[in-house]
């Protein structure tokens, strides 16, 4: 792909667990600075899709990231080194370590390649998540669900990602915290980072996103600009319920 502003271009992506195909021929495209969301029911293959993009799972098909075709046997670290960062559904924090250590480790790859701007980046993260500054010496495992999600996002942002992938950031959180998280996702737009957002909370996701895909049983069932999908009768019926108009 030579189009300059396309960050991620995926063609015919298939992922299988043994003989079971979890993701089938998915095409997906993310442009620079865009928030793209993938919504769909439980078990539709959303998390699998993200793990495959991040090279946590092996996949087939064509993945072009930042104009470079990615090898099929690429490693997670190579994706991190290219500025792709995943905030997984389970957060995967370092529970016994302090909040600031968790954040520092988010910048490990940059540190390893000689960048020493961790203090400034952490300051930016603290500005986005003031709660993390208050808790910076606390062990990550002792924090509330919302704070952990903030830490997981902050940790990923420490890597200064070009593409940030968020897997169910609202999972298990109270409505007020969800609102806060989505406000922050929206505010990330100004930093120029592209975001791939996987959500079951379709209403909130469609509100914040520019473009959306609906994934059902491993295949793209629908796609389009987010505001269009939010008004699509089928989407309203399946994912937004009666209160679909916002």
């Amino acid at each position: 792909m030579t189009e300059k502003n396309v960050v991620l271009d995926v063609k015919d992506l298939c992922v299988s667990y043994g003989k079971v195909e979890a993701v089938h021929k998915v095409n997906l495209r993310i442009k620079e600075g865009e928030i793209v969301t993938v919504i769909g029911p439980n078990g539709a293959g959303k998390t699998t899709l993200m793990n495959a993009l991040m090279a946590v799972l092996p996949c087939q098909g064509e993945v072009v990231y930042l104009g470079k075709a990615q090898r099929r046997d690429r490693e997670v670290e190579q994706m991190v080194a290219q500025g792709m960062n995943l905030v997984p559904e389970k957060r995967e924090l370092f529970a016994d370590m302090s909040v600031s250590d968790n954040l520092l480790l988010g910048a490990f790859d940059r540190y390893r390649r000689g960048h020493r701007d961790q203090a400034e980046t952490m300051e930016e993260v603290f500005k986005l998540f003031p709660r993390l500054r208050e808790r910076k010496d606390q062990a990550a495992g002792t924090m509330s669900g919302g704070e952990r999600q903030m830490l997981a996002m902050g940790r990923a942002l420490m890597a200064k990602p070009k593409l940030l992938m968020l897997d169910e950031p609202s999972l298990g959180l109270a409505p007020l915290i969800i609102k806060e998280i989505f406000r922050i996702i929206d505010s990330l737009r100004s930093t120029g980072v592209s975001i791939l957002l996987v959500e079951q909370n379709a209403r909130a996701a469609l509100k914040v996103a520019d473009y959306a895909y609906v994934l059902e049983t491993g295949e793209v069932a629908m796609e389009g600009p987010a505001h269009q999908l939010a008004n699509d009768p089928k989407v309203i019926e399946s994912y937004l319920g009666l209160g679909g108009k916002h």
């Binding site: 991040m54 946590v56 997670v76 670290e77 991190v80 080194a81 960062n85 995943l86 997984p88 995967e92 924090l93 370092f94 529970a95 016994d96 370590m97 480790l105 988010g106 490990f108 790859d109 390893r112 940790r155 890597a159």
Partner: peptide, 15 residues
């Protein structure tokens, strides 16, 4: 230490 605590998390940090 991070690798010992959480292997998946550590890989996602590029360790």
């Amino acid at each position: 230490r991070a690798t010992a605590l959480n292997r998946v998390g550590a890989r996602l940090m590029g360790i």
